[in-house]
Computed example of a mutant assay.
Amino acid sequence: MDDTSVYGAIEAGGTKWVCAVVDSGDHLLDTETIPTTTPRQTLDAAIGFLRRHGPLAAVGVGTFGPVDLRPGSPAYGHITTTPKPGWAHTDVVSPLRAALGVPVGLDTDVNAAALGEWRRGAGAGLGTVAYMTVGTGIGMGAVVEGRPLHGFLHPEFGHIRIPRDPGDPFPGSCPYHGDCLEGLASGTAMRTRAGRPAQELDDPHAWELEAGYLALAVVNLAYALSPERVVIGGGVAKHPGLLERVRERVAELAAGYPDTPKLDEYVVPPALGDRSGVVGAAGLARDALRVPEENV
């Protein structure tokens, strides 16, 4: 692969798309943030940005989901049963591939962020890393030996069932499950429970409750997948002192079983900050060059 190659990278979120062009060293050459409106408007704006920076070797996309990632599936590249109005069953890959004439790699936005942190951030040098994002919703991605984790679909960790705190009467905000992890601990849940956005909350009880729910998630993740590091990003996770309290609660919940690594090295913020997703999407673009088009 030529060291002068330039890749397109898109972190396709439910609120905004962050589009970037990245060189072979994962340095951002240019970025543009596009509001997530209708599929056609959003895709057209992303295509316009990438066309201005051609020729590109490939494009990588980390998108909100659920998304069909099964090679050979008739719905490959489609966002599927998302509750986001107007986006269910949207084909993300084909319009980009047709307009730009290059391979397009695809995964979830959180798998892309996990890949970015594994490549260049808090997971560099490790075999396994998990990335949990806590924002409007909650998602989790994982990378095992350089490959994002897939199964019959992809991780939907935001919808795991966790016990509701006995002092929390809130029924949950998830339209599918009510009081799943996302329904209890996402930014949407915090806003609905308190009546104002998480970033405006100064109630210590609200943040203690949040730390407890996220600690339950980390313990479940550690016991189920045993990643070598858990990276927690997203807007809610930036609240001062939250990750420190999550670590304390993780230690309480784990109760010494089994012996664990130092929690300030195990539960960490993203080293790449807000760049995790686009760095990971650039990695997806590189991977797309190695995958025959007929397989996707």
Rank of each mutant, 00 (worst) to 15 (best):
D3W: 12
T4P: 00
V6W: 06
E11P: 12
T15H: 06
K16E: 12
C19A: 15
V22K: 06
D23T: 10
D23P: 10
G25F: 11
L29F: 14
D30Y: 08
T31H: 07
T33W: 08
T36R: 03
T38K: 06
Q41K: 14
Q41P: 04
T42C: 13
L43H: 11
A45H: 01
R51S: 14
R52L: 14
H53K: 12
P55F: 04
P55K: 03
L56F: 05
L56M: 07
A58K: 09
G62S: 02
T63V: 13
L69I: 07
S73G: 10
P74Q: 05
G77Y: 05
H78Y: 03
P83K: 00
W87S: 09
T90Y: 01
V92N: 01
S94P: 02
S94L: 11
P95M: 12
R97H: 15
A98L: 11
V104D: 12
G105T: 14
D107M: 06
L115T: 13
W118D: 02
R119Y: 13
G121N: 05
G127R: 12
M140T: 08
G146A: 08
L149P: 05
G151D: 13
F152H: 14
L153V: 15
F157E: 02
I160E: 05
R161Y: 11
I162N: 02
P163E: 09
P166H: 06
G167N: 10
G167I: 05
P171S: 09
S173P: 06
P175A: 07
L181E: 02
E182S: 00
G183S: 04
S186H: 02
S186P: 03
G187A: 11
T188L: 00
A189F: 02
R193S: 09
G195N: 05
R196G: 02
Q199T: 14
Q199A: 15
Q199N: 15
E200I: 07
D202I: 09
P204W: 05
G212S: 13
G212R: 14
A215N: 07
A217M: 01
V219A: 09
A224Y: 00
P227W: 11
V231G: 02
A237Q: 07
R245G: 06
V246N: 08
V246Q: 11
V246S: 08
A251D: 10
A251Y: 03
A251S: 10
Y257N: 02
Y257D: 08
L263I: 13
E265C: 01
Y266S: 07
P270Q: 00
P270C: 01
G277L: 12
V278M: 03
A282K: 01
L289F: 11
P292W: 13
P292K: 11
E293G: 09
E293A: 15
E294H: 15
